[in-house]
Structures are given as C-alpha cells and as structure tokens.
Write a protein that binds this DNA or RNA. Structure first.
Lengths: 170, 170
DNA sequence: GCTAGAAAGGTAGTATACTACGAAAATAGA
DNA sequence: TCTATTTTCGTAGTATACTACCTTTCTAGC
C-alpha cells in the first residue's frame, strides 16, 4: 500500500470515516451497547446511572440543575427522573421555597442500587477503551475535553460548573 | 512522600469527565446540534443525510444493506427510509428477485437535495473540530477509528465492508 | 419435494434527545 | 405596587436507537 495515497487533507470529509460526527455517533452507540451489556442484570441506562450518581451524596436537586450537571435536556431529565421514581430509586418532593420546582432525592434503595451497579460502569468504561494505550487514552480524553469546552454552548444542554475542568477561578 | 498523591491513573473513572462514555455522549449531542444548525433551512438530520449519501450514486439497496453501511439498526434504517420516501427524496420499489426485500433508490429530487445540503455538512464538520490543530485532528480520527474497529461487533449495528478502513483486501 | 432454520420486513413498546407551546410562580424594574 | 420578564414544569410531537415478537419468503439439508 502506498504511503500517502491521495494525500488528502485531514479536513477532507468526503469519506464517511473522516467525518468526526460519524465516528462519534457510532462510538456513542457502541458505548451504550457495552454499558447495557455490562449492567445487563440491573436494567439501567448510562443516563439513568448518571442521574443517580449526581444525587448519590444525598443532595436534593431540581430538574434543571440535574439536567445541567449531566448534560441532558431539561425534558429528558424530567423523563429520566420520572422513570427512576417509578422504580423507587428516588423521590420527588415539591419545593416549599419555590412552588414551581419539583425536587429529586435519592432513596436508600437508590443508593444501594448505585453501589451495586458501579462495578459494571467501571467494566464498561474499561472495555470501551481497552484497545488504547495509556498515552492514547490520555490523548483521547484531552482532545474530547477540548472539543467539549469549545462547543459547550452549541448544544441544547450546556453543562454548568465547568470550573472543575478548566481550573478557572470559579 | 506523596509522589503519586492525587495523581490518579488515567483509568480512574470516578470523575464524570474522565469517563470516555460521558464525553462521547456529550459530543454526539453537540455534533447533532451543530449539524442541525448549519443545515437549518433544509430540515434534515445527520442520519438522514447519511442514507442519502449512500444512495447518491444511484445504487438500489435493501434496508439491511443501508443499515450496515451507515451503522444504524435495521429498524432505525427502515424508519429513516420511510421519512425520506414521504418527502420524495427516494422511492421504495419491491425487489423482484426477493419478494421479502423492499429496496430504496434515490430520486432526482433526492440527488439535488444532497447537492444542496453538502456544503452545510462540511461546515458542520469543520465547526465541530475547529478547536483542534491538524495534528490533534489526525490523532482524534486515528483513535476513534481504532476504538471503532476494536468494538465494531459490540454494537447492535456493526458496520460491514471495513476493508476500506483496515486497508485489507482490494 | 419437504421441512427447519435463516433472513427480510413489519408492528409495538421503551429510552434518549430535541422542539414548540402553555401554565404557574418567581423576580426585576418602572 | 404593578407589570414584564424569566424561570420551572408540564404536554405533545418528532427523530434516532434499541428490544421483542410476528409473518413472509428464501435457502439448505434431507
């Protein structure tokens, strides 16, 4: 095979496999599949687990805050919270301070559930990147983080409290 | 002597931002948002555009083949094809050779549509990775491709004809 | 030729993710 | 205080993505 066949620019997107958007979509599908496979017996999705993780320490949060912390749409967050409530993993008390707000608080059962699923989440992450060396892994995280910070406001669910990442002075 | 104190392994996933799955999900959301924004006037999604791209050269394909080429589920591909048919961008003749198969073929209108949307797709890809240097861009594509090839069979929609990527055969 | 299994399509149901709209409540400004 | 705006939640609708199950058709083995 020739060395630099065609010598196309890296910014040539005519090939599907040179489109970052395509690769990202496929990898997202695959990660979800791996997560569901590893946590098969628990019947939980990555986003549901994310919500429970955010609530794990006992904080009582409203839906908008939850949405901004895990990076999903407000409506999606409300859906997810409803499903988790149905399973008894969290409760949804009304706020007394703000009559509009509907809060979410993890239950004991929910906390036990997170403890039980945590190892599967770890297995899924490891399996997902098992082909990479530590160096490649680090490069991947760095580049994805860079893209995310750069485009955070482009999505419909911009994350807040990014100071943890940027190290910026709050 | 805390040489390694606080120096977490790259494989420590306790922080959300160290979880490749989380980063990938967010970036997927953002890419879709950017694509929809750039192609706003055309009312088309990345997956729909992918199907039309595969059919652009006039091939008549069945739904399973389309699904495997763009990496979506068989049922999802059928949904997408139905929507594109509704808009007159493709037709769905029945196969004479195989009475089960329902084929898809792009129309003249569909081909014109792809021509019109192509620049928006290019703009979306460029905007998505605009924060990266050529070197970072290349590293990203390489790593994502590596992950994809490694995990292709883990998803529900494994891609076929990967020889173009692996350099094998042909 | 016949039958079992595979393969293609379809329906139905669920979850994530978004848009658009509306109601109720909180807040900021005149 | 009164009003306009913002915020929060809700509903409804669409698209991607998957599972589960079903029918029809094709194919392989006998």
């Amino acid at each position: 095979m020739s060395e630099n066949e065609g010598k196309k620019s890296i910014r040539d997107f005519s090939d599907l496999w040179n489109r970052p958007g395509f690769l990202i979509r496929r990898l997202h599908q695959i990660h979800v599949a791996i997560f569901l496979d590893e946590s098969r017996t628990h019947n939980v999705t990555p986003v549901q687990f994310g919500v429970l993780t955010v609530l794990y320490d006992g904080k009582t949060l409203d839906q908008v805050t939850i949405a901004s912390q895990i990076g999903v749409d407000r409506n999606t967050a409300a859906d997810v919270v409803r499903r988790l409530e149905r399973r008894g993993l969290l409760v949804r008390p009304k706020s007394t301070a703000d009559k509009r707000a509907k809060l979410a608080k993890i239950t004991d059962e929910g906390r036990k559930f997170v403890d039980a699923v945590q190892p599967a989440m770890i297995r899924a992450q490891k399996r997902f990147v098992k082909a990479l060396s530590d160096e490649e892994h680090r490069a991947l995280i760095n580049i994805l983080t860079k893209l995310l910070l750069e485009s955070n406001e482009d999505g419909r669910a911009p994350l807040r409290a990014l100071s943890d990442i940027t190290g910026g002075g709050k």
